[in-house]
Amino acid sequence: MAHGIEDVAREAGVSTATVSRALRGMPNVSEATRARVEVAARRLGYRASPSAAALATGRTRTIGLLTPWINRWYFSNVIEGAERRLRAAGYDALLYSFAVSEQGRTPRVDPEVLRRRVDGILVVGLPLEPAEVAALEALGVPIVFVGTGRGDHPVVGIDDVGLARAATHYLIGLGHRRIGHITGTPDDLRSWTPPVDRRLGWASALRDVGIEVEPTWEEFGFFDIEGGTASTHRLLDRHPELTAIFVASDEMAMGALLAARERGLRVPEDVSIVGVDGHEISELVGLTTMAQPVEAQGAAAAGIMLGLIGAEPRRVEDVQGAAAFPTTLVVRRTTTAPRD
């Protein structure tokens, strides 16, 4: 005979509401009572129904993850870090991806697919329109951004302007003055996205030494190898005089390496290339890169979310503001001084 929550409550000498709170790990239950309820539940072989618990408590124990891609290195690693952190706390992740192409992003974010299904929302590297952010806010659950986001919600990421300046100044220090840039997608062109900040850092570093950036020194690479290859060809078709390229991701930088090889150019003798991320393959191909701790950012974002929804102790600094992780310049074989 299957035992229900009423049997556990009777066995433990508490109300059914206390049984629900104790087995869901919610606050306002003493440790002694929680232990008594858990012992009774194990003895009776009772397991709480997730759907019933959600109805009783208003909690789904699920966090929504919104991302443009799940098969790109940065995004998959952030998601892995977040999911691992959530699973350790007994929470699931509900994943929604929104493909980005040269025609833009479709579909737009629809908050109705998340209503009453999630306790919070992690937005991973997905640029949102103000109206989309407002629609998510209307759901009444916490929102945490990873990599890109507005400052009125917690944002976990890196100093994108600073890393771009460091990478570009490194190339300038080698003697380069004609430095191109490969960025992400047209959808990224908002004031609070990494591609915009990396472009600002690249351009400001060149202006530091009196070089005014030409708009045609920049191309969209769509954050993958194929896009990096095509964009490098377009860039060098227009400006064969470029001696270095700062690329906004390692995957696009690997595409830049392929394009250089297809054009018969030697890297780094003819063109130097610097990426961003610290992709595992970057070491294999000898790519100079600005490395960042990606999984740690996903885990940190999930930790902030767990605090905001009351699943873990809440830290004051997590309610607003940003969590910035360091980046490291890793010099390998794809950079050297220009020949001239």
Results as ranks from 00 to 15, higher is better:
residue 73 W to C: 01
residue 186 P to M: 07
residue 141 V to S: 12
residue 180 G to H: 06
residue 182 I to G: 06
residue 180 G to S: 10
residue 103 Q to L: 14
residue 180 G to L: 12
residue 176 H to E: 13
residue 136 L to Q: 11
residue 174 L to D: 11
residue 107 P to N: 10
residue 178 R to D: 15
residue 188 D to L: 00
residue 183 T to G: 10
residue 131 A to F: 02
residue 173 G to M: 09
residue 194 P to I: 07
residue 86 L to T: 02
residue 91 Y to Q: 04
residue 121 I to V: 15
residue 161 V to K: 06
residue 90 G to K: 03
residue 181 H to K: 03
residue 93 A to I: 13
residue 157 G to L: 04
residue 113 V to I: 15
residue 78 V to G: 00
residue 94 L to C: 06
residue 194 P to Q: 07
residue 169 H to F: 06
residue 118 V to C: 08
residue 116 R to T: 06
residue 109 V to C: 01
residue 97 S to N: 13
residue 191 S to L: 13
residue 177 R to S: 10
residue 191 S to V: 11
residue 180 G to I: 10
residue 151 G to C: 01
residue 181 H to G: 07
residue 163 L to Y: 00
residue 194 P to Y: 02
residue 157 G to E: 03
residue 145 F to W: 05
residue 82 A to T: 04
residue 194 P to W: 03
residue 94 L to Q: 04
residue 192 W to V: 12
residue 98 F to C: 08
residue 151 G to P: 07
residue 117 R to E: 14
residue 86 L to E: 12
residue 152 D to F: 00
residue 154 P to T: 08
residue 183 T to Y: 04
residue 192 W to H: 14
residue 85 R to V: 00
residue 94 L to R: 03
residue 184 G to F: 09
residue 74 Y to N: 03
residue 106 T to A: 14
residue 117 R to V: 09
residue 137 E to K: 12
residue 182 I to N: 07
residue 91 Y to T: 07
residue 117 R to M: 12
residue 136 L to Y: 09
residue 111 P to R: 08
residue 119 D to M: 10
residue 83 E to T: 14
residue 142 P to D: 13
residue 163 L to E: 14
residue 83 E to W: 00
residue 104 G to T: 11
residue 135 A to P: 04
residue 164 A to H: 05
residue 98 F to L: 10
residue 99 A to G: 09
residue 112 E to V: 04
residue 95 L to A: 02
residue 141 V to A: 12
residue 123 V to L: 03
